[in-house]
Each structure stands twice: as C-alpha cells, then as structure tokens.
C-alpha cells in the first residue's frame, strides 16, 4: 500500500534563528486565523544560542505523561568550529510535550500542542512555517512511501497485549478471572 508522507526538511546550516516560523505558525493557528500571535503557542520552536551559532527548529511531536530518563547533551559544529556542547537547563531538541518543561504546551491551559503540517481546508501549498522561511532552512516535500498493510489494534487490545507480553497469557487470564469474581 502507498501512503503520502509530508516532510518538513530542516537545514541547520541555513537556519539563523529569526523565529519567523514561530510567528507564522502561531498566527495561523490562532482563532480566528491570524487574529493573534504568541510564539509560545507555536508548534515549531527554535532552540537558539546566538553566541554558539546554534539554531535548531524543532516541531512539536507527541505528548508524554512522564519525562525521559537522563538528559542528552549535543556537540554541534565540531568540524567547523571548536565544537560546542549544547544543552538547555532542562533538555534540548526534543519535540515532546513533556512534564519537564513548558514547551509545546498552550501557555494558558498547559494542553499539549503538536505540528499538524497545517492541515486545513482549502489545503495550503506548504505549511506556514515553510512559506515564511525565506532563507530556505525549512523546505517542504511530499514523498510516497510503501507501507505494509497492518491491522490496527484497538487501544484496549494494545494495552492487554503489553500485559500478555510481560506476564504471559495464562497469568493475565487468571488475574482477569480473579478480578471478575471479586466484583461479583
């Protein structure tokens, strides 16, 4: 089966951290459209450190209830420069709406926000952040990818499958049976 994949290509050598993508995104997703701007609501965030020549746009991706273990530290521009360590006080270059920080969350409600590639009616030629990036750090591509047809599992199925994988089918069945008895 073929599926269309939307891609925002990010060229780190071209990004210079002006945050026009944040402006465009925040304006586009406000309600009514363009009625307000607040980069904190943008679904793309630029991690920037001017003195270290670090400018990394990151798209909001997924919500997670728990933060990850440890913390990554990036070395950037090692070949061109002296090699910078880059790590924000919490963590870097991650698109997750995660309890460790305020990024990719609505500033008022704290609800997670993520990039929707500007799905809208009528459809845009390219996402807003790409359109406003005149230096071409962000470019848009559509690719066709071959994907295996898969049977989508229901949410409960996934949960139970995890339990089965971990404890074995028999133990899970026993537990369910015991719980059923208790309820009666």
């Amino acid at each position: 089966m073929k599926r269309k994949v939307k891609i925002i290509k990010i060229d780190l050598d071209k990004c210079m951290g002006c945050r026009a993508c944040e402006v465009a995104c925040a304006a586009f997703h406000s309600n009514p459209k363009y009625a307000s701007v607040n980069p904190a609501r943008s679904r793309i965030q630029v991690f920037r450190n001017e003195l270290k020549n670090v400018f990394v746009p990151v798209k909001g991706s997924f919500y997670t209830a728990a933060e990850c273990a440890g913390r990554p530290l990036y070395m950037i521009g090692e070949k061109m420069q002296s090699g910078y360590e880059y790590g924000e006080s919490v963590c870097s270059f991650c698109g997750a709406a995660c309890p460790s920080r305020d990024l990719f969350k609505e500033p008022d409600s704290g609800l997670p926000i993520k990039c929707d590639m500007c799905e809208t009616e009528p459809p845009l030629d390219e996402p807003m952040c790409v359109k406003w990036c005149l230096v071409d750090a962000l470019t848009y591509e559509e690719r066709e990818e071959e994907v295996e047809e898969e049977v989508k599992l229901e949410e409960l199925d996934i949960g139970i499958q995890v339990m089965v994988d971990k404890y074995g089918l028999e133990k899970v069945l026993d537990t369910v049976a015991r719980m059923t008895q208790k309820e009666e």
Binding site: Y34, V37, A40, D102
Partner: peptide, 9 residues
C-alpha cells in the same frame, strides 16, 4: 508568553 492581537487579521 502572552498573545498580541491583530484587529483585521
């Protein structure tokens, strides 16, 4: 992290 509003968006 607050909004700036536009009159005629």
């Amino acid at each position: 992290t607050k909004d700036i509003n536009i009159a005629k968006p």
